[in-house]
Structures are given as C-alpha cells and as structure tokens.
Amino acid sequence: MNIFRLAGDLSHLLAIILLLLKIWTTRSCAGVSGKSQILFAIVYVTRYLDLFSNFVSLYNTVMKIVFVGSSLGTVYLMYMKFKATYDHNHDTFRIEFLLLPVAGLSLLINHDFSVLEILWTFSIYLESVAILPQLFMVSKTGEAESITSHYLFALGSYRALYLLNWVYRYYFEGFWDPIAIVAGVVQTVLYCDFFYLYVTKVLKGKKLSLPA
C-alpha cells in the first residue's frame, strides 16, 4: 500500500458517497446514467468473487464489500425507489456494444484461462469503458449538476491515482500487470475531456454545460 493507492481508494469511496448523497438528498437520480451504474455493478460483482476464496486483509475485504454493496444499492435506488426520476430518455447508450467486445477480449487476452481469472479480466476491461453511457448522457443533455460533476471527477481521479500507484510499484516493487495498466490508461484517457471542463468551469463556480 502506497500513498497513491490509498488516495485512489479514498477517491473512489468519495465518488460513491457523492453519488448516493446526490440521489438521497435531491430524492432524484436525474442526470445519472442507470446504464453506467448497471455496468459498475457488473464490474464489482464479477471482480470481487474472490471475496469467498482469497483473504488479503481486513481493509481489502471491507472495501470490496462497500464497493459491491454500494453499486448494487445505487442500481436499486435508480430502478426501484426513485425510478420515476430516472431520466431514461437521455440514457440511450447501447451497453451491448460494450459488453460483447469486452467479453470477447477477456476470453482472448487474460493471465490464465480459468473462470475467476477471466471474470476478473472482464471486470477490468468493462470498468475502463463503463463510464461511457454517463459521459454520453452528459454530452446529450449538454449539462450536469455540480454534485454529479464532483462525483465524476472523484471517480475519474481514482484510476488516475492508480496509474501513479502502478508507476510506484514498478520502480519500488518490480510489480506490473499489463492488463490492469492498459485498461487503467484507457479509463483515465476517457475522462480527459471531462477533467478539462471540470477544471475550467465547475471549479470556477460555473455549472458544467457544454457549448451547443
């Protein structure tokens, strides 16, 4: 565990808290892509199946349970409790165009052809693109609430901080995992346009709105 890794995990935790806070306090999931949230739920369920087979540390186990629980909870809030506020007319990204190629790629490029390993690889690849329906929704409506922008910034920062963690681990521990690194780079690059808008607009007190 190094400072980048810890900061990344905390950023991820902050993102989850911000999203739940937004939905809970506004009693609405307007502006949030249910499709991205379904993809994230699939990501964490398929990645943390090793909760039952492999104990790393109490920290690791608690975080895994929080990530799986909160992603399933968010899907519940969006599709059950606050269903009426879900803006599905603007959430039109076709997730099968992500799920099928990602499933194919995880069967082709993985560390080991075993069930847990392929599901882990699938989850890493899927996470890298899971935000696309949300970014597509923001670009379609042309705006996002401030708290949704903060959520996206924290969520994007988490993998960017993991990249620094991997640089650190490569130099000081000789550890590197090409699958996680390539997927992490792709994931972070997808946020670049949003990061730019966040810094130039939201941090200056303006609402995140895209030019027409």
Partner: peptide, 10 residues
Amino acid sequence: RYSVLTKDEL
C-alpha cells in the same frame, strides 16, 4: 504473474 491468489488491489 498477477494471479487470482495474489491480487491485492481493488
């Protein structure tokens, strides 16, 4: 190799 048994990241 970063296998199932050695994965420590989230």
